Simulated scan of single mutants.
Amino acid sequence: MLTPKITYGRARTGLTDPLAVLRLKGARVSLVEGEIRLLFENHVRREIRKRCYEYAAHFDALLRLQLEVPPGENPRTIQQLVGVGRVLWRDGRFVIPSRRPRGLALPTDWSMLPREQRLRLWLRSEGLTLTRLAERMGVHKSAPGKWLVSGREPLPANRRMELVAMGMPKECLP
């Protein structure tokens, strides 16, 4: 495949910019009717063209984000996309966050589920974990687990009111 990163000297490496890599290889990249199109200069060898097509297929979603701009505007850079949160950089890889809403749809009939499962479903629907719930409440990260899941400690009345005010259904509380 082509060079995976654009480097600026030996010590520094930059984010992968698929559009810049393809341009360096002599390709003009465009988005035509929803498809990525590559046009090459005459001097570009066939094997390089083939590798460019494979590279473009691999980074298809990222290239679309870069090229989806109004007519007459320059394509977005990877740095711009990372800066506004359209692309995330995790463990040396690009991650495109999904646009779907987080969480699950809650069941309408809660009566058949055990209380702990109802609690887990509610936390998921809110995009929370027990640790994040503890952060919101301003308590140690193990406290909600002791109160709500294991029952090792009773749930204080003021914390019960706080959880209900956060929107937790009373059926999830012990």
Results as ranks from 00 to 15, higher is better:
1 M>E: 04
2 L>E: 10
3 T>C: 02
4 P>L: 03
6 I>Q: 05
7 T>Q: 14
11 A>N: 02
12 R>N: 04
13 T>S: 13
14 G>D: 08
14 G>I: 01
15 L>P: 13
16 T>R: 15
16 T>M: 12
17 D>L: 03
17 D>S: 12
18 P>W: 08
18 P>M: 08
19 L>N: 11
22 L>Y: 13
22 L>W: 13
22 L>P: 11
23 R>F: 00
25 K>G: 05
30 S>E: 15
31 L>S: 13
31 L>M: 12
31 L>P: 13
38 L>W: 07
38 L>I: 12
38 L>K: 09
39 L>E: 06
44 V>L: 12
45 R>D: 14
45 R>L: 13
49 R>E: 06
51 R>W: 03
51 R>P: 00
52 C>P: 07
53 Y>G: 00
53 Y>E: 10
54 E>G: 08
54 E>L: 10
55 Y>M: 10
55 Y>I: 09
56 A>N: 11
57 A>D: 14
58 H>V: 01
58 H>M: 04
63 L>S: 04
64 R>A: 15
65 L>W: 03
69 V>T: 13
70 P>K: 15
73 E>V: 05
73 E>A: 07
75 P>F: 05
76 R>W: 04
78 I>Y: 02
78 I>P: 03
78 I>K: 04
80 Q>D: 08
83 G>A: 14
87 V>W: 07
87 V>N: 07
89 W>R: 08
93 R>K: 08
95 V>C: 03
98 S>Q: 07
98 S>P: 05
99 R>V: 04
99 R>T: 04
101 P>H: 02
101 P>K: 06
102 R>L: 15
102 R>F: 14
111 S>Y: 00
113 L>V: 09
118 R>C: 13
118 R>P: 05
119 L>F: 02
122 W>C: 10
123 L>W: 03
123 L>P: 02
124 R>N: 03
126 E>Q: 15
129 T>H: 10
132 R>P: 00
134 A>V: 15
135 E>Q: 05
136 R>S: 07
138 G>I: 11
139 V>H: 06
142 S>R: 13
144 P>N: 11
145 G>L: 05
147 W>R: 04
147 W>Y: 08
148 L>M: 08
150 S>D: 06
152 R>D: 11
154 P>E: 11
155 L>K: 12
156 P>G: 12
158 N>K: 14
161 M>P: 00
162 E>I: 02
164 V>G: 01
164 V>C: 00
166 M>I: 00
166 M>R: 06
166 M>Q: 04
168 M>I: 11
171 E>V: 02
173 L>K: 10
